[in-house]
């Protein structure tokens, strides 16, 4: 399908919200792909990190909200540390997660984690996971 680009789409409310929540200038990204190239979790993602920004630049936020990628971002900051434009992609991912959590509910349901595993996790994994995966 052909995506209809328009001023309305590329500046839609969700794009603005992602910019506001993340504090990042999406158009600062010139799509060099260094974030994707160095992302340690990229192998598990359905969209490359740079494609996430690209889709948001085009106003295609729904596709990003439907993607797995934001949930595989561990906020390790490798992308941001090396980004030639100083774009903090981990903040953009967090903003996307936030919108998804608010619109679609929690990504992680505690009951789904086996009790014995739950007992083994260090607190920081557990708390970190809940911070990232639940509203």
């Amino acid at each position: 399908m052909r995506v209809k680009l328009s001023a309305m789409r590329v500046r839609n409310d969700l794009v603005r919200r992602i910019e506001e929540l993340s504090g990042q200038d999406l158009l600062a990204c010139y799509q060099c792909g260094k974030c994707s190239a160095g992302c340690p979790a990229a192998f598990a993602m359905d969209l490359l990190p740079s494609q996430v920004i690209r889709l948001v630049q085009l106003g295609l936020v729904e596709e990003v909200l439907n993607a797995k990628t934001p949930w595989f971002c561990a906020a390790c900051q490798t992308c941001y540390a090396r980004c030639p434009k100083g774009v903090d992609l981990s903040r953009i991912m967090e903003a996307i997660r936030e919108i998804a959590l608010q619109e679609r509910g929690d990504y992680l349901v505690i009951e789904e984690i086996p009790a014995e595993e739950l007992a083994e996790f260090p607190q920081l994994a557990f708390i970190g996971g809940f911070r990232k995966y639940t509203a």
């Binding site: 399908m1 052909r2 995506v3 209809k4 680009l5 328009s6 799509q31 740079s50 494609q51 690209r54 889709l55 085009l58 295609l60």
Partner: peptide
């Protein structure tokens, strides 16, 4: 087209 995202695009 936008080869970066793999999307065909249309502008009116």
């Amino acid at each position: 087209t936008d080869t970066l995202s793999g999307q065909n695009v249309e502008v009116a």
